[in-house]
């Protein structure tokens, strides 16, 4: 079913990062905290907004949880979570 988590771009290098239950951050979407609780999400987002050293422009994304593994719902977030473009980089 559809749940939500908080993500943003790391201030240092812009890579996608995901908020964990303890409001610290991880590079792995699978380790991010997934919830349905709107109050908790609001608290997470507020905490993220106060954390500009680490993260820029935090926002909420939808994830589909399949056998305890969250997957981003949108193509955009799938591409972000995959760590790079879907095409080969010039070399």
């Amino acid at each position: 079913m559809t749940q939500q988590m908080v993500t943003g771009a790391a201030t240092a290098d812009g890579r996608p990062i995901y908020m964990k239950r303890d409001h610290t951050w991880t590079d792995r979407l699978a380790d991010g905290h997934v919830t349905l609780d709107q109050d908790e999400l609001a608290r997470m987002l507020q905490s993220a907004r106060g954390d500009e050293f680490v993260v820029c422009d935090p926002y909420v994304i939808e994830v589909l949880v399949d056998r305890a593994r969250p997957q981003p719902a949108s193509l955009r977030e799938k591409i972000r979570a995959s760590g790079g473009p879907t095409i080969a980089i010039a070399s």
Partner: peptide
């Protein structure tokens, strides 16, 4: 000229 993109600046 410094943007934030999907994966990086």
């Amino acid at each position: 000229g410094l943007y934030m993109q999907l994966h990086a600046y």
